[in-house]
């Protein structure tokens, strides 16, 4: 591959400083810190999904109707679908920069299990995409006349759900990172897998509006997340190996 020698001089100063005997925790934290620093330096990339989220939500009242009653009825679904698409938008860049400058290969060569290191990358993605989306959603909920009492559930379900979305989406991102036109393909691969999360996420908000119990929905979202946490890292690691070696 192209940049095996140039990668250490690139952005990964933290990984470079860590000694190999540092162990798993150190490697995990180093990857976490490095990715956070890199992402925070590219603020526009962090902001883009949030702006996208806000714009898409603005489109719906314009496209459908400004009638608050109608909007309130479809608001949970709209907010969830828009947040899901915004999270999808940022997936392509999850491994792209590291792939281009070769630091992904360095990650593959570390003695630590790759699955856990990718988990650190996914965690950063969620911290800078899913969590801000979840925090921003109640604000947009007000604009869509979302009934009061469901704001906290909306934020909570999005925070839980986007973590699963980041994990599942990272599999697709890892599979397509080596392809030059992977962006559209990525959404084709990932969107069908997002459907259960969407159903239970939007269902939680719906249930909160109707006054039903929400714990079942949140519990299922949590179950989906723990399942994704167990399985997705291995799939991501395998996919990265395919993309790099192939």
């Amino acid at each position: 591959m192209s940049a095996t020698d140039g990668s250490l001089s690139g952005g990964d100063m933290s990984v470079g400083h860590v000694e190999p005997q540092g162990g798993l925790t150190v490697a995990f934290c180093a990857t976490l810190k490095r990715d956070l620093v890199l992402m925070l330096r590219r603020r526009s990339e962090v902001m883009n999904p949030l702006v996208f989220f806000a714009i898409v939500i603005t489109l719906f009242p314009i496209g459908i109707s400004p009638d608050p009653q109608l909007l309130a009825a479809i608001a949970p679904g709209l907010l969830w679908v828009a947040a899901l698409l915004a999270a999808l938008l940022s997936l392509d860049s999850l491994f792209r920069a590291d792939y281009d400058d070769g630091s992904l290969e360095q990650l593959l060569l570390t003695p630590q299990p790759l699955a856990l290191l990718t988990l650190a990358k996914v965690a950063v993605h969620w911290l800078l995409t899913g969590l801000p989306l979840a925090l921003m959603a109640p604000l947009l909920g007000i604009m869509l006349a979302l009934p009061a009492g469901s704001y906290l559930v909306l934020a909570l379900s999005l925070a839980l759900g986007t973590a699963s979305l980041s994990l599942i989406g990272a599999i697709g991102a890892a599979l397509t990172v080596g392809l030059s036109r992977g962006g559209v393909l990525l959404s084709l691969l990932v969107l069908p897998l997002y459907i259960p999360v969407l159903i239970f996420g939007a269902g939680a908000v719906q249930a909160a509006i109707l006054g039903d119990g929400i714990m079942a929905h949140l519990a299922i979202l949590g179950a989906l997340l723990s399942l994704a946490l167990c399985l997705a890292p291995w799939a991501i690691a395998a996919s990265l190996r395919i993309s790099i070696n192939g």
């Binding site: 599979l175 459907i195 259960p196 989906l224 799939a235 395919i242």
Partner: peptide, 24 residues
């Protein structure tokens, strides 16, 4: 690469199929 990528995706998909089915 194509073979291995398709295999991984098929396996990921097959784990998801029952989840999708039940949630739908």
């Amino acid at each position: 690469s194509a073979s291995r990528a398709a295999s991984v995706l098929a396996m990921v998909g097959v784990i998801n199929i029952p989840i999708i089915k039940y949630s739908v």
